[in-house]
Structures are given as structure tokens and as C-alpha cells.
Write a protein that binds this DNA or RNA. Structure first.
Lengths: 143, 143
DNA sequence: CGGAATCCGTAAGGATACTG
DNA sequence: CAGTATCCTTACGGATTCCG
């Protein structure tokens, strides 16, 4: 019996599932990268803008505001001219670093296989046959 | 010196960061919930449709296809009438369960604080003052 | 410097209906 | 039962401009 169980399993709900709670916070294009930029301590707005490759002012502000609202990020304003604003993780925000790192590690370790699987899948569905390995072709995608 | 380091830090890139690789896979409304539905073994299409609360056929198919393409999910078709299709995690897919569980655990443990932080933030920005705790008001949101 | 405001295109996702 | 196909709405995010 490969089925898990015949007993009624609880539903997986968007509103009560721990996964969804987290995704509600980190699931978008920039959030984890922005948190990542703060993992070593305070960092200024402009510095983040440069470090997080490709992010716009709009999205950086929006992302960091949402994190602040969620209690994961603190904002420190130095009322100088020109203004200086630093961001850092709150204690709550820092607790998210560990689970995040595990995800990153998974990505580093396994993404090669994912890319290969994709190539294999695409090949199968465009030619009708299957390849054993497409490691050669995807080599240039590794980083 | 609260700054992490003055030495040049590597940029955080969408294309080469382990975080982005994972998000590329799991960062959307349904993926983690669908993976979650398979954590105990094979499960049929219709059963998932019922278990994952609120998902439509379109999104379930789309999500599960993407996971299959990524090599995280296997599809087993029994050519009976009516057809029976079962999905299960591949070995690669199962390796994602552990880091996912840590995230879920984080959500379960800390989401209360996040909700409270939000209420506090919203209160501060709608009234101009700050509250110490809004635990009372957010109680009905807990699950 | 650190934003806010505005405009705009794309794409993610919902609703519904149809099919082998 | 396990999907496709189509339409449609919204929200995410990019580009640009302006401001204290």
C-alpha cells in the first residue's frame, strides 16, 4: 500500500497552513534577496539598491516597507542633509535567516538537476523521445 | 562598528543566487501546498483538488505540470476508463520537504507576531500614535 | 539621498464551459 | 476522472518623473 492513509486527512488551506503564512511574507520577486542583503547587519538604502541587482527604487521601498510592517525589519533615520536611512533585521527577522539558508542551500545543491530535468522534459515533448542526460547542454547555465 | 564589513560584498543577483533558484520553483500561490499534499505518498488528481482548498483544476494542472517539468513530481497514469492519474514526489522532490518544513514551522511559530506587528504598524500610521500590543484584537485571526 | 507619484504592460490566476 | 480551452480581471512590477 503506497497510499499514505485512507483515514481522512486535514485539508490544506491557504488561510491556515504554515506554508501559506510564510509565503505570504517571502513569496515575491525581491523579498528574500532584500532580507539576504541585510543578513550581515545595518545597510543603507542606496547600498541595497546597488547590492540587489536589478531592483528599482520603487520595488526596494515597497519590499522594505512591507517587511517593516511585518515586524521583520527596522528603519533607522538619521535626520541629516542629505538624509541617511539604514535598515536592519529585527530579532524576529533574524529568526527567518536560518530556514531561508536551508532553502538557499537546497537551491545551490539541486538546481542543476532541476535545469537538467527541464531540458529533458522539453526535449521529450518537442521530439517525442526521451534523453538520458542533457548535462552537456546545460553546463553553461551553471553558476 | 555595526556595519558588517567595508570590504566589497558580492552582489545579490536574481540569476545566480540560491534563493532565486528556489523561488523560481516554489514561489507562487499553490506550489508548496501541492507539494505538501504529496508528502505522504501517491495521491490522485481529484483527491488533491479536494485537499488543496480553493485550487482550481486549471491551477492544479498547471502547478503539477511545472513540478513534473522540474523533475520534482512523477505522474502515473492508469489507462482505465475513467482514467486514474496519480502524482507523487520524485526522490529529488522529497529532498525539498525538509527545508520546506522548516519554513512551515517558522510560519506556525512566528506568524502571530507578524500579524501583531501589522496591526501595530497600521494603527500607528492611521492614528499617528503607537500601541504596545494588539494581541487582543488579532486573536480571532489565529488558527 | 531616499523616497513618492504616476503611467503602463505583462502575466498570474479565477470563472466557466467543454472533452476523451 | 482528469484534464483543455477561453475569457477576463487584477496585481505585480518596470520606467520615468518629481520632491524635501
Amino acid at each position: 500500500m503506497t497510499y499514505a492513509s485512507k483515514t481522512k486527512q486535514s485539508d490544506i488551506s491557504l488561510s491556515n497552513c504554515g506554508y501559506s503564512k510564510v509565503l505570504d511574507i517571502i513569496s515575491n520577486k525581491w523579498t528574500v534577496l532584500v532580507i539576504y542583503a541585510m543578513e550581515n547587519g545595518k545597510i543603507r538604502y542606496g547600498e541595497m539598491l546597488r547590492r540587489v541587482e536589478g531592483i528599482s527604487k520603487k520595488m526596494l521601498t515597497q519590499t522594505v516597507r512591507k517587511l517593516e510592517r511585518d515586524g521583520l525589519v527596522q528603519r533607522h533615520i538619521s535626520p541629516t542633509v542629505p538624509p541617511s536611512v539604514e535598515y536592519s533585521l529585527t530579532p524576529l527577522g533574524e529568526t527567518l535567516l536560518q530556514p531561508m539558508k536551508e532553502l538557499r542551500q537546497w537551491g545551490r545543491v539541486n538546481y542543476t538537476q532541476v535545469v537538467e530535468a527541464r531540458a529533458n522534459y522539453d526535449f521529450a515533448y518537442t521530439t517525442g523521445s526521451l534523453k538520458k542526460s542533457s548535462a552537456d547542454e546545460v553546463m553553461e547555465l551553471q553558476v
